[in-house]
């Protein structure tokens, strides 16, 4: 009974996207002018850290304008929190042929 209660509290926290320990934070590496992974799925409330592993700066921005990073020089990182569910296509504003997508589930 007690175990069952803990399970439901746990499930509630996950579905509400609260409880930082429960949010599976992710990272995207930028190398060879490509986002890795280019298609990422996370839970609402999670963060995605973009890290530039190229010898050239990149700048990540959502196609809908909902987020953008500063220009990331080599080895620079930027962390974006995805609070609400949805599909967020993004691109590099400096090299717009570079595209990726974050799918945020409730």
């Amino acid at each position: 009974m007690r175990a069952k209660l803990i399970f439901w509290v746990f499930a509630l926290l996950v579905s509400a996207g609260i409880g930082p320990a429960l949010a599976a934070d992710a990272s995207v590496s930028i190398s060879n002018f490509t986002f890795h992974p280019a298609d990422l799925q996370i839970k609402a409330g999670s963060t995605v850290t973009f890290r530039n592993d190229d010898d050239i700066p990149h700048r990540v921005a959502a196609e809908d304008g909902s987020f953008s990073t500063k220009a990331l020089d080599s080895d620079d990182k930027a962390t974006i929190t995805f609070a609400r569910p949805g599909v967020f296509p993004y691109f590099c504003t400096i090299h717009p042929h570079m595209r990726g997508k974050v799918t945020v589930t409730p």
Partner: peptide, 17 residues
């Protein structure tokens, strides 16, 4: 001679050139 300096690096569109 007529010289024209153009700017093609602003407001780049996702997937575009």
């Amino acid at each position: 001679v007529h010289f024209v300096g153009l700017v093609n690096v602003v407001n780049l569109k996702a997937g575009g050139l």
